[in-house]
Design a protein around this nucleic acid. Sequence first.
DNA 1: CGACTTCTGGACTTGCCGGTCCAAAATTTG
DNA 2: CAAATTTTGGACCGGCAAGTCCAGAAGTCG
Lengths: 175, 175
Amino acid sequence: MYLRSDEPGEVTLDDVRAITGTSKGQIFHYIPGGKEELLLAVARHEADRVLEDQQPHLGDLTTWAAWERWRDAVVARYRAQGRYCPLGSLMSQVGSTPGASEVTTALISRWQAHIRRGIEQMQQAGNVRADLDADRVAAGFIAGIQGGVLVLRSTGSTRHLEAAMDLLIDHLRGS
Amino acid sequence: MYLRSDEPGEVTLDDVRAITGTSKGQIFHYIPGGKEELLLAVARHEADRVLEDQQPHLGDLTTWAAWERWRDAVVARYRAQGRYCPLGSLMSQVGSTPGASEVTTALISRWQAHIRRGIEQMQQAGNVRADLDADRVAAGFIAGIQGGVLVLRSTGSTRHLEAAMDLLIDHLRGS
DNA sequence: CGACTTCTGGACTTGCCGGTCCAAAATTTG
DNA sequence: CAAATTTTGGACCGGCAAGTCCAGAAGTCG
């Protein structure tokens, strides 16, 4: 039975010690909360990166071309990441502690707010039907992207992610 | 068979022993592969249940009313399940072994095939535009549902799941 | 009944990992 | 410089959980 080895499973404090070239003493000196505090800090950092990697497109969804660039950026980012999802692994390790779900819900809500804002701007410009519930469509995007990434993690293909994003953009276009 | 009630972490063989009223000797006598084989067997069983719980709707997506019933069944099922997703927990424990991804990809592909078939039937009946790529839209459904459930697991709300399914059904309707 | 096979229970082994502790090195301070 | 404080390294502890082993119970068959 092999526990050890490559990326997928668990990260141990010994791994951290080895990688950072430090010692247990230092880890607990600087991070009194131990493993959970460490993992949560990394998770928060990764969560920020998720949104950063979508910029500047995510913050400026004001034309159809921008939506396409955003779509491409998201697909490219996750294609590059492949089966290994840092944030996903982290969250599954930190389990269902209160801090963990706080990180995910915060990420989701910031992400969704960006998308909603983009839709509203498109509506104001008359490019999207005004009677669409922007927040609801934004929620759909979040779900589609998350699910696409989940599928990517187990199949290695970005097909579902692309399909979800394309369909939702088409929906906005009113096709 | 029911598994733990306190959702979060790990299932140990001692848990299994206690719940089933057996002993380590028996477990390894009947399941030589140990924990991994056991977990995979349960995962396969849960995967079957996922589709069973959507029947008979999933197998008969031939009218708009049927699509709505299916949508309601899926939402109801996951709402009832709440934050605790048996299959999800299982898969995160069994990690990224080859057997694990085989279970998920098999589930995804059967699920998607059902949806695709439903779309094709609607197309043949003239209810859905014939130029829609049925398999692609089905992939979008899978992504949306998976993502909706993922969000449900961390926020406890079915809002994203409902939004994703409604938007995709609207899309089929060509609204 | 008696040899033989299968099943059962649970003590035991092995190895892992988070966390503690403290002695010594480095650094600051007076 | 010397005392006080902070930082460092790593041996060690405790607990946990997967998997092994074997002694005996239960069942099978001639």
